[in-house]
């Protein structure tokens, strides 16, 4: 079924740009609040967005985040031009991380990113090709019922 898109915006994310890390997600959170999305959904979307944004900044050269909001769902799709993930199943397990000491000094790289994205999404899809990049698709329903 086609759902009418009520709001859509793209955000460019630059790999390695730790100074601006989180700015796109803070903007997304404000946008969703302004759109009148329920607070619990806003929070889940903000966390999903931030984790995905940090992954691009930590591991990829660049990436694009697409936010779309319909009457019944918030969708966040993140495409990066990065190294890709060799073993997606392993990357999805809590505690597994390939973060550098610099990333850990900033408080990231506990191996919680992808599992946390999945936990906060109603639908989560990940496609990754080594040497090409990774695509994450996250959907959060706005009516409060998990899919």
């Amino acid at each position: 079924m086609m759902t009418e898109i009520s709001f859509q915006q793209e955000f460019e994310i630059k790999g390695g740009d730790f100074v601006r890390a989180g700015e796109a997600s803070c903007e997304i959170k404000n946008l969703l609040k302004e759109l009148g999305v329920a607070m619990q959904v806003v929070r889940r979307a903000a966390i999903v967005s931030y984790e995905a944004e940090m992954n691009v900044i930590m591991y990829a050269g660049s990436g694009r985040l697409d936010l779309s909001v319909t009457s019944d769902r918030v969708q966040i799709v993140v495409d990066d031009r990065g190294p890709g993930i060799e073993d997606v199943e392993l990357a999805m397990s809590e505690g597994y991380s390939t973060a550098t000491p610099e990333m850990r000094e900033l408080g990231f790289g506990a191996g919680m990113g992808l599992p946390n994205i999945k936990r906060n999404s109603d639908i989560f899809k990940i496609h990754s090709k080594v040497g090409r990049g990774t695509r994450l698709e996250m959907t959060i329903r706005t009516n409060g019922h998990r899919l």
């Binding site: 408080g107 506990a110 191996g111 990113g113 946390n116």
Partner: peptide, 25 residues
Amino acid sequence: MSDVLAFIDPESVLVTGLITSHVVR
């Protein structure tokens, strides 16, 4: 911060020794 994002309850007070802008975000 990864643990904060994964486990904190809304409206909690965060106690930390990190002082970067990432803590605020």
